[in-house]
Design a binder for these strands. Structure first.
Lengths: 104, 104
DNA sequence: GCGCGCTGCAACTCTATAGTTGCATTAGCG
DNA sequence: CGCTAATGCAACTATAGAGTTGCAGCGCGC
């Protein structure tokens, strides 16, 4: 589960990929179905989905000739928890440094 | 405070920028000071710091001729909360869709 | 079986940006 | 005042990746 965070954020740092995630948040869909709703070609969407699947944000299921993708909200939440812990740790540590500095 | 999330993630999606954030998490520092610890030039670091400051992840304070940067853990935590809410919402909605489908 | 719709692969363009070098500027300090 | 150490600005290179077009392969339904 120690998914390195940076690639996940790199994946999340693209507007088109967010559009895809948001669309999947309203229901599972295939790359072709998404291409109807979004202003990019199916192939572009397929590449984005591959990236998202690589970092574990979506999951695919084969249904005959079509590949349906599902967004994994739990993974997003897990990433969020990691982020929160890191941010809190920074604040904690810097506050400690500040206290020490003021004690001089 | 409705900082658009995507640019923040784009900023977090770079290894060098994470190195900078982690270094700042151990104590405030200037671009020159960071350049000593990291394997890139000061100018590269300065650009990264500008990006991070743009999205609100760090803050700078002038102290004479030097610019000290401080990481803002609270902003990271705020971003984390947004992420968590979005992920939870997706899971909630998709579960509802699944229940409806099973009821047929 | 045949055509249609969906996916997969490959090559290509183009833009954004990470990183560099070089120089100008300015603020402390002896 | 001059030296040094810090930031700021500009031009440049190079690579990653977002997007495209074109075509091949394959499962479904008539």
């Amino acid at each position: 589960m120690t998914t390195t965070l940076v690639p996940v954020f790199a994946a999340l740092g693209d507007e088109t990929r967010w559009s895809i995630l948001v669309a999947l948040g309203e229901g599972d869909a295939s790359a072709s179905a998404l291409a109807v709703r979004l202003p990019v070609t199916r192939q572009a969407i397929a590449k984005h989905l591959a990236v998202l699947e690589d970092v574990g944000l979506v999951e695919s299921t084969r249904a005959g000739r079509e590949l349906r993708y599902r967004v994994l909200g739990s993974q997003l939440s897990a990433t969020a928890r990691s982020l929160d812990r890191i941010g809190a740790e920074w604040d904690r540590r810097l506050a400690a440094i500040k206290r020490i500095a003021e004690a001089l």
